[in-house]
Amino acid sequence: MSTVRMQDSYSGMTPALPPASRSVLRQLWHDRWIYLFLAPSLLLFVLFVLYPVVSSLYFSLLDWNGFTSNARFIGLDNYIEVANDPLFWNAFNNTILFMVITVPIRVSLALIVAIILNDPRLPFANLFRTALFLPVITTTAIIGVVMTFVFDPVGGPVNRFLLETGLVDRPINFLGQANSALYTAMGIHIWKWFGVTLVYWLAALQTVPKELYEAAQVDGANPRQVFRYITVPVLLPFGLLILVITALDTLRVFDLILTLTGGGPFLRTEVVEVYIYRWAFNSSIPRLGYASAAAVFFGLATLALAAMQGVVVAYLRRKRNEL
């Protein structure tokens, strides 16, 4: 009995012969194991993914502080207020600045290091890779806390080093100064996630067929030619994907910013996620409706970026099939 069920489920469609005689209900009952297998995923999905997504859309239309029951429907007013709040645009700019500055640095530096580490004759390659990967596995919130001490103007080792080598006369308050805080946070972010981008590049480099290199060597190509005419064309599509993945990464810097600066000084490091958190959990009068509107607003921007990733992946697939 189970044999029959297995096979016709497997063959793809419902049995070809008597579709009319089989009601939908019977088909559902017939596939009951399938739905049972789906149940745990779907249950969790509906409760903690779908419901929150849909209801944050709804919340964004309310004037609601999250505690009382007297939520008032106000249509798109929250969105209008978000769009007119200079502090939202400050956070938005910080987020975009974060992306525009860190992504090219991370992606290009990681490529250079990946090419060096990809050399099979390089000694200690494993050690280097492990060292560069170490920050990736450490908890971001802990990094944020530790880094406030590393960059401390009074006793932190960075300022000690700068003072002792005479590079500066007086300590720099890296994270407490309006003009340096965001850039310091960017530096820490690059340091923390560099290893991931490195792994991506190493994976991409490994897809370059060895025969191509061997053929180039036989033909007497020099390393620069090999890089220009073999490595670059193969890596280019991967590079696009790595760029987009990395860009999406930089939208998730909540843990780091909250533990590092809390958005200060003077909101100079406040990214959109922290802005939302501030309105939802951390202000004297919480405004969940307003925070939700800001979240939806920004979520749409993220979606646009994600759609780009989809396009890039599709492009990659096509490219690969052509090869």
Binding site: P52, V53, S55, F59, R252, A280, A291, G299, T302
Partner: peptide, 14 residues
């Protein structure tokens, strides 16, 4: 459809 919805932003209803 929900893969790219930034989940941190839905923490309130969660």
């Amino acid at each position: 459809a929900t893969v790219f919805v930034p989940l941190g932003y839905t923490i309130i209803p969660t």
